[in-house]
Deep mutational scan, measured.
Amino acid sequence: DYYKILGIPSGANEDEIKKAYRKMALKYHPDKNKEPNAEEKFKEIAEAYDVLSDPKKRGLYD
């Protein structure tokens, strides 16, 4: 669930989505986080943001 990945409610607005994305992206960026699964988690976060930040894609997802 993209909302769960970003840690936001399904009714989140654009600003909340952007803030959550930035926070999670910094936390899991492969250059900052050396955990083995950090890169995979970072890709999931980027995919979630891509879908939820685009009103058309978000509409299809919801």
Rank of each mutant, 00 (worst) to 15 (best):
1 D>L: 01
1 D>G: 09
1 D>A: 07
2 Y>M: 04
2 Y>R: 01
2 Y>K: 05
3 Y>A: 01
3 Y>I: 00
4 K>R: 07
4 K>C: 10
4 K>S: 05
5 I>N: 09
5 I>V: 10
6 L>W: 00
6 L>M: 10
6 L>T: 02
7 G>F: 01
7 G>C: 09
7 G>I: 00
8 I>R: 00
8 I>K: 01
8 I>Q: 02
8 I>F: 00
8 I>P: 00
9 P>E: 05
9 P>Q: 09
9 P>Y: 07
9 P>V: 07
9 P>W: 03
9 P>C: 06
9 P>F: 10
10 S>G: 08
10 S>E: 10
10 S>Y: 10
10 S>A: 10
10 S>H: 06
10 S>Q: 13
10 S>L: 06
11 G>Q: 03
11 G>M: 05
11 G>D: 05
12 A>W: 00
12 A>I: 01
13 N>Q: 06
13 N>V: 07
14 E>R: 05
14 E>K: 02
15 D>N: 02
15 D>S: 06
15 D>F: 05
15 D>G: 05
16 E>R: 05
16 E>T: 09
16 E>I: 04
16 E>K: 09
16 E>H: 04
17 I>G: 01
17 I>S: 01
17 I>P: 00
17 I>L: 07
17 I>W: 00
18 K>R: 09
18 K>L: 14
18 K>D: 11
18 K>Q: 14
18 K>A: 14
18 K>G: 13
18 K>Y: 09
19 K>D: 15
19 K>T: 13
19 K>S: 12
19 K>N: 14
19 K>C: 10
20 A>F: 00
20 A>P: 00
20 A>V: 05
21 Y>L: 01
21 Y>P: 02
22 R>F: 14
22 R>V: 15
22 R>P: 03
23 K>G: 15
23 K>P: 02
23 K>A: 14
23 K>Q: 14
23 K>M: 14
23 K>V: 15
23 K>I: 15
24 M>S: 09
24 M>H: 03
24 M>P: 03
24 M>L: 12
25 A>E: 14
25 A>V: 15
25 A>D: 06
26 L>G: 12
26 L>K: 11
26 L>C: 13
27 K>R: 10
27 K>Y: 09
28 Y>I: 06
28 Y>G: 08
28 Y>F: 12
28 Y>H: 07
28 Y>L: 14
29 H>Y: 07
29 H>M: 12
29 H>T: 06
29 H>I: 11
30 P>K: 12
30 P>Q: 10
30 P>Y: 07
30 P>G: 14
30 P>V: 13
31 D>I: 12
31 D>L: 11
31 D>K: 14
31 D>W: 05
31 D>N: 13
31 D>H: 10
31 D>Y: 12
32 K>D: 03
32 K>M: 01
32 K>P: 05
33 N>K: 14
33 N>H: 11
34 K>W: 02
34 K>H: 04
34 K>Y: 06
34 K>C: 10
34 K>T: 12
34 K>F: 02
34 K>A: 10
34 K>V: 11
34 K>P: 12
35 E>L: 13
36 P>C: 15
36 P>T: 11
36 P>D: 09
36 P>L: 11
37 N>Q: 12
37 N>V: 10
37 N>G: 12
37 N>K: 12
38 A>E: 09
38 A>W: 12
38 A>H: 11
38 A>N: 14
38 A>L: 11
38 A>I: 10
39 E>N: 15
39 E>R: 13
39 E>V: 12
40 E>N: 15
40 E>A: 14
40 E>F: 13
40 E>G: 12
41 K>H: 00
41 K>V: 09
41 K>P: 05
41 K>Q: 08
42 F>A: 11
42 F>L: 11
42 F>V: 08
42 F>I: 13
43 K>E: 12
43 K>P: 03
43 K>M: 12
44 E>L: 09
44 E>Y: 15
44 E>R: 09
44 E>I: 12
45 I>H: 00
45 I>S: 04
45 I>A: 11
45 I>T: 06
46 A>M: 12
46 A>V: 03
46 A>P: 00
46 A>N: 13
47 E>H: 04
47 E>T: 05
47 E>N: 02
47 E>S: 05
48 A>C: 01
48 A>K: 03
49 Y>Q: 03
49 Y>D: 02
51 V>W: 02
51 V>G: 05
51 V>N: 02
52 L>Q: 01
52 L>M: 02
53 S>C: 14
53 S>G: 08
54 D>N: 03
54 D>V: 15
55 P>S: 11
55 P>I: 09
55 P>V: 07
55 P>A: 09
55 P>M: 06
56 K>R: 06
56 K>H: 04
56 K>N: 06
56 K>F: 03
57 K>R: 06
57 K>F: 03
57 K>A: 07
59 G>F: 01
59 G>E: 10
59 G>H: 05
59 G>P: 08
60 L>R: 12
60 L>Y: 04
60 L>N: 12
60 L>M: 08
60 L>T: 13
60 L>V: 11
61 Y>K: 08
61 Y>W: 09
61 Y>P: 14
62 D>S: 05
62 D>W: 10
